[in-house]
Design a protein around this nucleic acid. Structure first.
Length: 682
DNA sequence: GTAGGGTTAG
């Protein structure tokens, strides 16, 4: 980890102006020495601010009061409502009288103690009701809030609500109820209550924000939008940010993928002398790693060490993930050796990441050595590792090796799982080995692994790609009879298949089917439609789909415009292609190499040689590196207008620009030379 | 404390 030799880290934060104050400027080595955060509204509270109850009444000896008779009474007489009954039982009245002198804090403590255990929670409930009935204790809202809190902890949200409705909500009961909702993952109710609370003029407890963020994370539904909203509300409420809440905010933004905001709050925290939890820092390192921002990941990793903590496997893995992501194999190797040096045991994930790194670099022998090392260290590999190895082979076209991978798996005592089989099936399908594909599918089922939508989608799509549309349709039917529900991807594949066959009514049927199932068409659906309609020259339909997508509120992608431009280009409709390109620009999309290549093709097919070359100039001026396709398309354009003699120069420029010619490029040059020769011979 | 990470469609 040559931190000093690395370029300056990208620790400057890109924050949306939305709710956030300007970030504190900080230097990588001084995260801990931050100036206090420039936050106007937020009061930060540190642990010293928390007050300890000077004494707990329930823990003090109280020989004066014996609650046993009361609890015995309540276990047999369950008061369901606090309202006084028409006729009071004299025994009950005597009992109540004997407790008249009990001070309120003692009742509070008793209820707290009873509530803390699920087995006595109902006793606590009865007690509160009974106290209210005999008016023995003031501040029922406190008693209620203790109960609501306990009910919430015990999955009894409904009961908590019932209880809360006995009287109008106060800040205490509001907070207890919001907390109960958040704990029970009923975020809608929690947020609603928070809104109501605010409208009633009360400020929500900061703990509720923590509970809500935790709930969002538990349910994997945390996103930047909702966090921004919550943070805006915290600011509006002038909520105090304590250590836990800051930890939660950082974890939330990390998990939502907004690592810049996570870093910002990390700065806020450290600037105020608070230490984030190790797991929070590791989460940030991990997220930075996933984004390939390894320098920053290193910086936070160093912070972790500077905090006096010895990083453990999890922390190392997080950093390792970053190195693997950016292909920094040497750093990856270094970090693993560092683990060994400091006595931190690598686990299955560590080795998997390392194998991934070697696989990405095409170093299969090294990957195999890691497998051996795993074995030696008694760390059992799982299907994931082999799946990654197989994916590597697939992307290199070495489908024959899949049998070898299977054998090695067997040797390690690992049985292939569904995802492994899915990759294997896809691999055979992509390399036109449909027989192998189907036999792998059969084998998978024999081993008792149920195919899932990915399996079926792969089977169907691979048959389409090999032109076997009938088989695709059969599989589509088989999928459904087997009880596997087609998803949007399945429909996209089938729309593509029917579109290829120009079965337009069937395409419409599929769209109708999707709608009846409540499956919304996505960007891929619309792009597929634009593609198939465009390819068959039905440009009006293609444009309609584009418009439909926009009015459905989906953002057009550059792939979609590429499909359209490409369709125009193939028919030599250069004016329309240019127009589509302009509309794409109007939608704020950057011109991609793909789109520009299509534009060259459009001019070429329309015999507008000089415009085709002006696109090349445009590319050079705009820092878009022309590729083999660019030059090949230009050569094709020259051949189209019979300017054969200009072709070799283009080929030469391609070589000079560092573009390796492929088979198509060489074929283009050859045919130009052939024409040239034949014209010279004339 | 555990999981983390993998596969399909334009």
């Amino acid at each position: 980890m040559n931190a000093l030799l690395l370029p300056p880290p990208r620790l400057h934060l890109r924050l949306s102006p939305l709710h956030l104050h300007p970030p504190p400027s900080f230097h990588r080595r001084h995260l801990l020495l931050l100036s206090p955060a420039a936050s106007q509204h937020l009061r930060l509270i540190t642990s010293e601010d928390h007050q300890q109850d000077p004494y707990d009444v329930a823990l003090l000896p109280n020989p004066q009061y014996d609650f046993t008779p009361l609890l015995n009474f309540l276990s047999t007489h369950n008061p369901s409502q606090p309202d006084s009954p028409a006729r009071l039982d004299p025994n009950e009245l005597r009992l109540a009288d004997s407790y008249r002198a009990v001070p309120a804090p003692l009742w509070h403590s008793l209820i707290k103690n009873l509530s803390s255990s699920p087995s006595s929670l109902s006793a606590a409930y009865s007690l509160v009701t009974w106290l209210q009935r005999h008016n023995l204790c003031f501040s029922y809202e406190l008693l209620y809030s203790i109960l609501i809190h306990a009910l919430g902890r015990n999955d009894q949200l409904y009961e908590a609500f019932l209880l809360s409705q006995r009287q109008s909500l106060t800040p205490l009961t509001y907070n207890a109820l919001i907390g109960a909702c958040a704990r029970n993952n009923d975020l809608e109710k929690a947020l609603n209550l928070m809104g109501r609370m605010r409208r009633d003029g009360y400020q929500s407890d900061f703990v509720n924000y923590s509970l809500i963020i935790q709930s969002l994370m538990r349910n994997h539904i945390v996103d930047v939008g909702i966090l921004e909203k919550l943070y805006g509300e915290m600011e509006a409420d002038r909520i105090e940010l304590d250590g836990q809440l800051l930890n939660d905010i950082i974890a939330g933004f990390t998990k939502a993928g907004d690592v810049d905001r996570a870093l910002y709050f990390l700065g806020v925290m450290q600037g105020n002398g608070m230490s984030p939890k190790t797991s929070i820092l590791v989460g940030v390192v991990s997220e930075l790693g996933s984004l390939g921002r390894v320098e920053e990941a290193e910086a936070v990793f160093e912070e972790l060490k500077e905090g006096g903590l010895k990083p453990r496997t999890r922390a190392y893995n997080a950093l390792l993930k970053g190195y693997v992501k950016v292909g920094a194999l040497r750093d990856a190797e270094y970090i693993v050796s560092e683990m060994e040096r400091t006595g931190v045991l690598p686990d299955e994930y560590t080795y998997s990441l390392l194998i991934d790194a070697y696989g990405n670099a095409g170093r299969w022998e090294s990957a195999r050595i890691v497998l051996k090392e795993m074995e030696a260290n008694n760390v059992k590999p799982n299907s994931y590792v082999f799946c990654r190895i197989l994916t590597g082979y697939r992307d290199k076209g070495e489908w024959q090796r899949s049998f070898q991978v299977l054998k090695e798996m067997k040797n390690c005592g690992v049985s292939p799982d569904r995802q492994f089989y899915n990759v294997m099936i896809d691999m055979f399908g992509k390399y036109n080995c449909l027989d192998h594909m189907m036999s792998t599918f059969a084998r998978m089922k024999e081993e008792g692994i149920e195919p899932d939508t990915v399996t079926w989608n792969t089977l169907i799509d691979c048959h389409c790609k090999q032109g076997q549309h009938n088989k695709s349709e059969e599989l589509f039917a088989e999928m459904q009879t087997s009880g596997c529900l087609p998803c949007t991807t399945t429909y996209n594949i089938m729309i593509h298949s029917f579109g290829r066959q120009e079965r337009w009514d069937d395409v419409k049927d599929l769209l109708g089917k999707m709608q009846s199932l409540g499956l919304l068409p996505n960007v891929v659906t619309y792009t597929t439609l634009v593609d198939i309609y465009g390819q068959s020259g039905r440009f009006n339909e293609a444009i309609e789909c584009l418009e439909a997508m926009k009015s459905a509120g989906l953002k057009p992608s550059s792939t979609m415009y590429n499909a359209l431009i490409n369709a125009y280009a193939q028919r030599g409709l250069s004016e329309q292609a240019v127009h589509a390109f302009r509309v794409m620009r109007g939608d704020g999309l950057k011109p991609s190499l793909l789109a520009l290549n299509s534009l060259i093709n459009a001019f070429g097919e329309d015999r507008r040689e000089s415009e085709a070359f002006s696109v090349l100039e445009y590319m050079k001026e705009n820092d878009l590196k022309p590729d083999v396709v660019t030059y090949t398309t230009l050569m094709k354009a020259l051949i189209k207008v019979e300017s054969y003699e200009k072709v070799p120069a283009v080929f030469e420029e391609m070589l000079l620009s560092g573009c390796a010619p492929d088979r198509k490029a060489r074929a283009m040059l050859r045919s130009a030379l052939k024409y040239l020769k034949s014209t010279l011979n004339l």
